[in-house]
Design a protein around this nucleic acid. Structure first.
Lengths: 137, 137
DNA sequence: ACGTTTATGATACTGAGAACCACTATCATT
DNA sequence: AATGATAGTGGTTCTCAGTATCATAAACGT
């Protein structure tokens, strides 16, 4: 399952790449930083270098296996791009990340860019707010 | 003009703060990094420290005089918040930044968040693409 | 003008991420 | 299955944006 994903992406099958992919696929947390992924793998008893984690995640991103997001935390977080495109809503209290997709917003973005003569290659939309659980705090 | 802005923001009137505000108000480039602002002030013959530029920009941001944006370049850029809210479209080739405001998108964002039970405090929407001048390159 | 308080700026520090490089693993070929 | 060319690994160093420290200097109420 995993190894075929790697081959499709034109990447050689190596232990670190397998481990990282497996970890991302099995983790309940969808959005994690390179450091967090690294720590988790170490805790799982894997021998892996931080540099490798950064390198592999960048390769995965280039291959389209993974998406990198820059929320306001400063450090990038990565998520498996198994789902289609979506945007994010981040809780400013607890840091929870939810995903959403809105056809109307997507289309309007393209229109706005077209009006200005731009050819959009990418966009990032992130909403920040308090999630239901954090509304009182 | 400028000093009253500072007083309103609850900030003491100091030379560095004046210089930075004046620079931002007179610069034709609306979106600049702390380092760029620092360099420009040095070139203008001002004596100012990089630490002060960072410090003052953060104070300005807190006071609402300035907005900080994290585009994909890695370093933050600052802009005077004289205009109302708006989003950005960034050229991936030349780095040019344009602004836009779309009522439809704004409203829809609020609706999407409401549906999920979030109270939105902020959002960031940035489109990336090629501007008309860079379409061929 | 004076003295307290706050700001400045040179420098050291931090933390995320990339670069380097000697060593190791992968895999096509034999 | 052994080989060797190629690509990957991981420890470490480096870079770069931004922050903390602290001795000095400027701001402003009295």
């Amino acid at each position: 399952m995993e190894s075929s994903d790697l081959k499709k992406a034109g990447l050689k099958i190596t232990l670190p790449r397998m481990k990282i992919l497996e970890f991302l696929e099995s983790s309940k947390i969808r959005h994690q930083s390179a450091e967090e992924i690294y720590r988790s793998l170490l805790n799982d008893g894997e021998e892996i270098g931080l540099a490798t984690v950064y390198r592999v995640l960048t390769q995965f991103e280039t291959a389209g296996l993974v998406e990198r997001h820059h929320f306001e935390s400063g450090q990038a977080v990565f998520e498996l791009s198994e789902k289609g495109h979506h945007d994010h809503i981040v809780c400013v209290s607890c840091g929870k990340v939810e995903e959403f997709y809105d056809e109307l917003i997507e289309n309007r973005q393209r229109e706005v860019a077209d009006e200005k003569g731009y050819h959009v290659t990418d966009h990032s939309l992130t909403l920040y707010g308090k999630c239901p659980d954090c509304r009182d705090s």
